[in-house]
Design a protein around this nucleic acid. Structure first.
Length: 421
RNA sequence: GGAGAAGUAGCGAAGUGGUCAUAACGCGCCGCACUCGAAAUGCGGUUGUCCGCAAGGGCACGUGGGUUCGAAUCCCACCUUCUCCGCCA
């Protein structure tokens, strides 16, 4: 959420940002309502001040045993007026909130302006894709042949876009979770195991609601949602708090299941592990001083990259264009891993700086000094990494001609075997 | 799920319809004094937010409604925590 005062005083900047994102929002209507709103506040507060003053007077009169009937009857009208104006004010507030809550974040100046993902820019690349002297199989073919992934039975038991992991497949999934958490906590991220279900307020805090409710799984007859990412519970962990500036940046890593309705993705990536309704992820979250947040974004991205490097998976880093940028993000780097069966790079991590956009929604602040005013922190997060897609990348990149899959060196202590066969 | 109790500043807590919400009192924290220094002691300070150039106002006692000229205080609903019972991995 943007600062209302900022929108009012910098309408041109906001309009330009909306244009860069190809978002259609009528800002002029909004600004007119804002004008009205302030007028109403001014009016109703005048009446309230009068009421407060007169109430004191009534109290004094009654205490002295004098008659206050004339004042009381006067205040009856004032009370009615206040009620009426307050109602008007809350109506206009509600209308404005509907708009304000759907205005996306302003892209950082370093974000390339573009239409969609085709305008994302490659920032760097790590290692060249492996060359095969045989035709590489897809991870789902490998998974089924090795009897470590079972999509068919998941379809029977649950439905499309779910998977059973089995034997060394299940162990690989678990090994990756442990491996990543171990690496990140060694780097100073505090490990957290969060709830996988959150309330509406938390989903609002990180920006999933109100605009993207159709993407979430909501639990019937409750106001609970399955989390689409650990970002939601971890960022909201500090909701409505004032943090100590000396403790910043706070860095957390968390494993969680992730649940996504994938509304609008019908027909895309229907086979394999790439797009599931349920997947596992290790997430990195940071709460940073505003002046350090872009350095922290580089740090966080590097920490996610280190996992890919240790696993020996070729990848590239792209910076998302303004047209592809997520709603809450000011700047995002995607890490894309090489997937031989796709003959292309696919997103395996997304690292974003939200600046104060989430912090304002979730009311997460810090104080520089004892007498200083609280300020909003900057929040960041990134996958470190998506586990299912990492499994897919390992199976495809480490497959051997004989159909076996070599276990990456770094993972062997966690797997206890050198080959999946 | 059932019964009961409670939610007020960083913490503990007073306030049960009006002159007590920059919220009594205590602890903590900050500053000053005293001291060679510290402890102890004394004095002072210590919520956030909104409107406004400012002066000055408004709002907030778990949350949302209601009653009233006026609500921390009365009524209703909900949330959270604690205790006991039931159930359960």
């Amino acid at each position: 959420m943007l600062d209302l005062k900022f929108v009012r005083t910098n309408p041109e900047i906001v309009k330009e940002a909306l244009a860069k994102r190809h978002a259609e929002i009528n800002l002029d209507d909004f600004l007119r309502q804002e004008e009205q709103r302030r007028q109403l506040i001014f009016e109703v507060e005048k009446y309230k001040a009068e009421r407060n003053k007169t109430s004191d007077e009534v109290a004094r009169l009654k205490k002295n045993g004098e008659n206050a009937e004339h004042l009381i009857s006067l205040m009856r009208d004032v009370g009615a007026k206040i009620k009426e104006l307050d109602q008007k004010l809350s109506e206009i507030d509600n209308k404005m909130q509907e708009v304000l809550y759907t205005i996306p974040n302003i892209p950082h100046e370093s974000v390339p302006v573009g239409k969609d993902e085709k305008d994302n820019l490659e920032v760097r690349k790590w290692e060249e894709p492996r060359q095969f002297n045989f035709t590489p199989l897809s991870h789902f073919e490998l998974g089924e042949r090795l009897d470590i992934l079972d999509f068919g039975r998941a379809g029977k038991v649950t439905g499309a876009r779910f998977t059973f992991y089995k034997g060394l497949g299940a162990k690989l999934e678990r090994a990756l979770i442990n491996f990543m958490l171990d690496r990140h906590s060694k780097k100073g991220y505090t490990e957290i195991f969060p709830p996988f279900i959150v309330n509406r307020q938390s989903m609002f805090g990180t920006g999933q609601l109100p605009k993207f409710e159709q993407d979430a799984f909501k639990i019937e007859n409750t106001e609970y949602f399955l989390i689409p990412t650990a970002e939601v519970p971890i960022t909201n962990y500090h909701r409505d708090e004032i943090l100590d500036a000396e403790k910043l940046p706070l860095s957390y890593c968390a494993y969680s299941g992730c649940f996504r309705a994938e509304a609008g993705a019908a027909g895309r990536d229907t086979r394999g592990l790439i797009r599931q309704h349920q997947f596992n992820k290790v997430e990195l979250v940071k709460f940073s001083l505003p002046e350090n947040s872009y350095q922290e974004l580089e740090n966080l991205t590097a920490d996610a990259e280190a996992i890919l490097q240790e696993l020996g998976l070729p990848y590239r880093v792209v910076v998302l264009s303004s047209g592809d940028l997520g709603f809450s993000s000011a700047k995002t780097y995607d890490l894309e891993v090489w997937l031989p069966s796709f003959n292309s790079y696919r997103e395996i991590s997304s690292c974003s700086n939200f600046e104060d956009f989430q912090a304002r929604r979730a009311n997460i602040r810090f104080r520089r000094g004892l007498k200083e005013k609280p300020e909003y922190v900057h929040t960041l997060n990134g996958s470190g990494l998506a586990i299912g897609r990492t499994v897919a990348a390992i199976l495809e990149n480490y497959q051997q001609e004989d159909g076996r899959v070599k276990v990456p060196q770094a993972l062997q202590p966690y797997m206890g075997v050198q080959y999946i066969e």
